[in-house]
Amino acid sequence: MKELIAPFNEAQVRALKVGDEVAITGVVFTGRDAVHKYLHEGGQLPPGVSLRDGIIYHCGPVVMKEPDGSWKVTAAGPTTSIREEPYQGQIIRDFGLRGVIGKGGMGERTLAACKEHGCVYLHAVGGAAQVLAECVRRVRNVYFLEKFGSPEAIWELEVERLPAVVTMDSHGGSLHRDVMSASSAALAERL
């Protein structure tokens, strides 16, 4: 298990290869369908949010308000990333992302952007909402809560040792492409 600790930078990310298991510590921002579409259409990040050298997490958490007004994340697994394929490459380029956490993998355009700009795709275990919620130490802030609703809002989370697997690296490697190709060949032999 490799430790990936904020501040994230290009050298750290370039050292990662497909198949590496990592533990992520630092600040991550959630962002899913509504946020990606909004940024793609030229929307601006709210004051206080910077994705430069940062990590975006494709996640719509369950968040409860505590009696003291603070937020508590009670479930926080990844959502399917491929829906952001039309937008992700551009957002990596324009906002300087170093990592994308999600599930299911992404396509060729995102892979190319990872290679060109120094970013990796980090696959968390889909459905593991409790294990991943345990890694959230604190909710620092929330943005666009009214505009997009709770699952689609940008949640600023401090995470500690959040487990993920590098399935797309910054050298053009993709575990998803490899598994698709091997499983297609295996199926062809069995039809």
Binding site: C59, G60, P61, V62, T74, A75, A76, G77, T79, G126, G127, A128, A129, Q130, V131, A133, E134, P151
Partner: peptide
Amino acid sequence: LAKRKSQPICQD
């Protein structure tokens, strides 16, 4: 964990 804490297995 989900069973012990009585919280959703998956957030979706």
